[in-house]
């Protein structure tokens, strides 16, 4: 079974049908549709981080590097005034991001624990300055994307990326695929070793596994998907800028992943929606929303350790 927990199946059958129908109710409200779209894009990013931190035990504070990279890569490799094929460029961007992740992962994964947290952060900061200091990449203002890609496969085109509702469905499809992909990955034989490494790295080495390779592979996979999320973000807003790579992007993604329930994958969607929802409400109530957000995060660490997914599972799963 792809989803081995009841809570997970319930979430799946509630969230996706609801998300599928949502635009029907909001047909006129394009603001809300694009707000939901951007939350889904970020949920995809948080999901890739959740896999890395929650399933692999690799705590990174530099995941936003790949989010930003996804956007900048598109600007770099796509011709400026010509519509390229969305799927082809998805493939390109994921592959290039994977190659970058291979190099950075090789350096970063030589370390572990707190050391790794600081090094991932420092690398992300390096990328941040690389883009924000260079004139070619538009400095702190970033860059505009003038032409959006077309989405035909074998001459058939289902999505028009200039139409917010179409783009909404493209992102929903991406989120759906990513969730399924991670579930398959976790259930796989590779996933078994990753779980084993997370629970007891020393033992796994003693059984003859080269844990570095498994960690590196996980890092590469998660980074490529993180870049894919950044690519979607860039297509939605038509620009890319260094704030995508800022450490606060990594930090808030981490908070959302915990809020959702670390390592549960589907919790990433819950966490992102709840966090963004709260953010939206607080921002409209007070300009000092950060104070409440901070207090909320502190409270969460203190008393709400299992996140939303964990708490739901406690309620819904049969005791064994």
């Amino acid at each position: 079974m792809l989803f081995n927990k009841r809570t997970e199946r319930i979430f799946f059958w509630v969230f996706f049908p609801l998300a599928l129908l949502m635009p029907l109710f909001l047909a006129e409200n394009t603001f809300f549709v694009s707000k939901l779209t951007s939350i889904m894009i970020f949920a995809l990013f948080v999901m890739s981080l959740d896999y890395l931190v929650g399933r692999c035990g690799l705590i990174t504070l530099g995941h936003a590097m790949f989010y930003g990279l996804g956007g900048y890569l598109f600007w770099m490799i796509a011709p400026e005034y010509e519509a390229v094929n969305f799927w082809v460029y998805t493939f390109y961007i994921c592959m290039i991001a994977a190659a970058v992740a291979l190099i950075i992962g090789f350096l970063v994964l030589r370390t572990s624990g707190i050391y790794m947290i600081m090094i991932t952060l420092a690398f992300a900061q390096m990328a941040f300055y690389f883009f924000s200091d260079s004139i070619e990449f538009g400095g702190t203002d970033g860059l505009f994307i003038y032409v959006k890609p077309e989405t035909s496969i074998f001459g058939l085109s289902f999505f028009d990326l200039d139409n917010p509702t179409h783009f909404y469905y493209l992102c929903l499809l991406s989120l759906f695929n990513t969730l399924i992909f991670f579930r398959i990955l976790i259930r796989s034989r590779f996933g078994r070793v990753v779980d084993a490494i997370h629970e007891n790295p020393g033992r796994t080495t003693a059984l003859g596994y080269n844990i570095f390779v498994f960690r590196l592979m996980s890092y590469v996979i998660a980074s490529a998907l993180g870049a894919y999320a950044g690519y979607l973000f860039t297509l939605q807003y038509g620009f890319v800028n260094p704030s995508m790579l800022a450490w606060t992007t990594s930090g808030s993604a981490l908070v959302m992943s915990i809020l959702g329930g670390m390592g549960s994958i589907y919790g990433a969607i819950l966490g992102t929606f709840v966090y963004e929802g709260l953010h939206y409400v607080l921002e409209h109530l007070t300009e000092h929303w950060m104070l409440f957000m901070g207090a909320l995060i502190i409270a969460m660490v203190m008393v709400f350790k299992n996140g939303i997914a964990g708490s739901m599972e406690k309620l819904l799963e049969k005791r064994t």
């Binding site: 259930r187 590779f190 084993a196």
Partner: peptide, 26 residues
């Protein structure tokens, strides 16, 4: 956190191969 069988499966799988198979269910 894993069952006794799963504990041993991790050990067996190392020499049976397929540990890099990301699609095949465990």
């Amino acid at each position: 956190g894993a069952t006794c069988l799963e504990n041993c499966c991790v050990a067996v799988q190392r020499r049976m191969g397929g540990s890099f198979n990301i699609l095949r269910s465990r």
